[in-house]
């Protein structure tokens, strides 16, 4: 494992109660790349994504075995501070979910929870995050207005800014554009490509063209198994496995 490997997943098996949702997943995720996770509904890609920041802990019947290493630390080790993990590995959700607070407070929420109170520092963090999320120009005059007054696409960019405010290492995105219109979707795609310069991004998408457009590497999941994982240039042109080929060419959903 070199220093370019952000996550190294080894032999991951995940269960919801008796039902096995992920089987023998082994996959490395590389720094400053966009890794796309594709596959039909229910194949486990979102479940897998959630293991990376331990959001699966919130689901009672969920348990797993195997190892997920974030750099050289097993994140499922007893002593792992989950809250600290989540400040390094942020998440953006499918449906934009800004808090019913002002735009400023939304972005300042994370830092405030970590104890940052200085008004000047918070102001800078908010400004910086909004700029990185390509939202600053649109909202700079109304930071005190409610976040719910923004459009869907803007709200999602706000959520991205909110995550960035924590200065994470990795950003997990769970179908971030599936609730948005095509123009908003493209704006976010451009943003994600920009962001990979500073962050490592893992994005779950059910839109194959999106994965083809923006990702460096893509992983294809099917029924809880990782079927194929490779560079976009080969996976979308000459996939190794027939199942991958069939999914990509849409021969089955």
């Amino acid at each position: 494992m070199n220093e370019n490997t952000v996550f190294d997943v080894k032999d991951l098996n995940l269960y919801y109660g008796e039902k096995q949702a992920l089987k023998n997943i082994e996959i490395p995720i590389y720094k400053n790349q966009i890794t796309a996770l594709i596959g039909p509904s229910g194949c486990g890609k979102s479940t897998f994504l959630r293991t990376l920041n331990r959001m699966n802990d919130l689901i009672d019947e969920c348990h797993l075995d195997g190892q997920i290493n974030y750099y050289d630390q097993n994140i499922y080790h007893q002593n792992m501070d989950v809250i600290s993990l989540r400040t390094h590995v942020g998440m953006v959700f499918q449906k934009p979910n800004p808090f019913p607070m002002s735009i400023f407070d939304n972005i300042a929420y994370g830092p405030r929870c970590q104890g940052i109170k200085d008004k000047q520092v918070l102001k800078e963090i908010v400004e910086e995050s909004l700029k990185q999320a390509a939202l600053y120009e649109e909202v700079k005059d109304r930071l005190k207005e409610s976040a719910l007054s923004l459009s869907g696409g803007q709200q999602q960019r706000l959520c991205i800014a909110r995550t960035i405010a924590m200065k994470p290492d990795v950003i997990l995105m769970d179908e971030p554009t599936s609730a948005l219109d095509p123009v908003a979707t493209l704006k976010i795609e451009d943003l994600v490509v920009e962001l990979k310069k500073n962050y490592t991004i893992i994005i779950v998408t059910h839109n194959m063209q999106q994965a083809a457009r923006i990702a460096d590497k893509t992983a294809f999941f099917l029924m809880g198994e990782l079927i194929e994982y490779g560079d976009n240039s080969t996976l979308f042109s000459t996939p190794q496995f027939k199942k991958t080929e069939d999914y990509i060419t849409g021969r089955f959903g």
Binding site: F236, S237, T238, I248, T249
Partner: peptide, 9 residues
């Protein structure tokens, strides 16, 4: 159709 893989080839 935005063909991919074998369709594209």
């Amino acid at each position: 159709e935005q063909p991919l893989a074998s369709d594209l080839r």
